[in-house]
Amino acid sequence: MAEVQEDDAGEPAQRTMTPFDDIYDQADPRAFFRELGAFGYRTPHHAQRIFRRLAALRLRAPGEVVLDLCCSYGINAALLNHELTLDDLYAHYTSPRAVAMTAEELAEHDRSFFRARRRRDAVPVIGLDIAPNAIAYARAVGLIDDGFAENLETTPPTRDLLDAARSIRLITITGGASFLSRATFQPLLDSARTLPWVAAFVLRTGSYAPIAEHLAGHGLTTETYAGRTFVQRRFTGAAEQQYAIDAVTAHGQDPDGKESAGHFHTALHLARPSADVSTPPLDELVAR
C-alpha cells in the first residue's frame, strides 16, 4: 500500500507512487496491460530499439545471454525478439478474443502468436523476478529461455541461477530499479565469465547512484544519457504527481515540462567497462 499522511486540510496526502501490486503476479499479463495501459505506460517501447542494439553488440558467441531483471511477464523479451511493438501487445492482451479466454487458453494461443513473429536475429534471454506466476507465464509461452523466481534482496541465489549467470553479457532493466541494491547485483556480476553491460531505465524520483557506485566497484563505468528523458506513464492523480515533483526536486532534478506536465519520466543509465565506454558512444547508441 502507498504510505499516506494527512495534509494541512486533513485530507490524505500521498507520499509515494500508486501501487499496482495486484497486477504483477497473475497467471497471465492481461491485467498488467489493462491497468497500466490506462495510464499510458511506455518504458518498454523506449527500451526496445536500444536493447536490440546493445544485444547485437554484446552477444557474439553461442550460449551468451541477456538477463532481464524484474522481467515480469517477459515483455522486454517479447519486444527484443519479435516483430512486435508495445502497442501491438496492448492490442493483443486487451482484445475481446484474449479477454474471453481462460489463462490456459491464452497461454496456448500465445505460444503460436509469438512463434509466428520470432525475429531471425533473436537472442537468448533469461528472466529474474520475484513473481513466480509471471516467470512461469514467460517461460510457458517461450518468451524467456529460462526464468528464476527469486528475490536476491532477501535470499541468496540458487545454484541454478548462478550457473545461468555465467553466460550473461547484458543486463536490462525497465522497472523495479528502486527495489534493487548490491545484494542483487553482487552474485550476478561475480558469477559472470565476462563482465556484462548494464542498461537501466530508472525513474527520476529515485537515485541510481548507489547502484552505479556498486557497479563501479566491479569495474563498470555508468553513463547517464543526457539527450532526453523518457516518459514512463501518466500520473494516477494530483497526489501522485505532487509526490513525483517533490521527489525529483529533492534529488536535484528539474520537474519542469516533465513531471510537472503530467508524467513520470525515466533516465537511461548504461554501465560498461571503461575500455568500452566509447565503443560506441552512448549518444550514438540512443540517437541513431
Rank of each mutant, 00 (worst) to 15 (best):
2 A>H: 02
5 Q>C: 11
8 D>S: 13
11 E>W: 11
13 A>R: 12
13 A>L: 12
15 R>A: 08
15 R>W: 03
16 T>K: 04
18 T>L: 02
18 T>Q: 08
19 P>Q: 04
23 I>G: 03
25 D>S: 04
27 A>V: 03
28 D>E: 15
28 D>G: 08
32 F>N: 05
32 F>E: 12
36 L>R: 06
43 T>P: 01
45 H>Q: 13
46 H>C: 04
48 Q>R: 14
48 Q>A: 15
49 R>S: 14
50 I>Y: 02
50 I>H: 06
51 F>W: 08
56 A>S: 12
58 R>G: 00
60 R>Q: 14
63 G>L: 12
63 G>S: 09
66 V>R: 11
67 L>Q: 07
67 L>P: 10
67 L>I: 05
70 C>Y: 05
72 S>Y: 00
76 N>W: 01
78 A>C: 06
80 L>Q: 12
84 L>Q: 08
88 D>N: 14
91 A>I: 00
92 H>T: 14
97 R>A: 14
99 V>Y: 03
104 E>T: 13
106 L>W: 07
110 D>Y: 07
114 F>M: 08
114 F>S: 05
121 D>Q: 08
122 A>H: 11
124 P>G: 08
126 I>A: 04
126 I>P: 00
127 G>I: 02
130 I>N: 06
132 P>M: 07
144 I>T: 09
149 A>V: 07
150 E>V: 04
150 E>A: 06
150 E>F: 06
154 T>Q: 15
154 T>V: 09
155 T>E: 13
155 T>R: 14
157 P>K: 08
161 L>D: 06
163 D>C: 01
166 R>C: 06
170 L>A: 07
171 I>V: 15
172 T>H: 10
173 I>E: 11
173 I>L: 15
175 G>S: 13
177 A>T: 12
182 R>E: 15
193 R>K: 10
196 P>F: 07
197 W>V: 01
198 V>L: 13
198 V>I: 11
205 T>E: 10
209 A>F: 04
211 I>R: 02
215 L>W: 09
216 A>M: 07
216 A>D: 14
216 A>K: 11
222 T>V: 09
222 T>M: 06
222 T>Q: 07
223 E>V: 00
228 R>D: 11
228 R>Q: 15
230 F>M: 06
233 R>H: 13
239 A>Q: 14
241 Q>D: 01
241 Q>G: 02
245 I>N: 04
247 A>P: 03
248 V>Y: 06
250 A>E: 15
253 Q>K: 15
255 P>Q: 09
255 P>S: 13
255 P>E: 10
265 H>V: 06
266 T>W: 00
269 H>C: 03
270 L>I: 02
281 P>A: 11
283 D>T: 12
283 D>F: 01
284 E>N: 04
287 A>E: 15
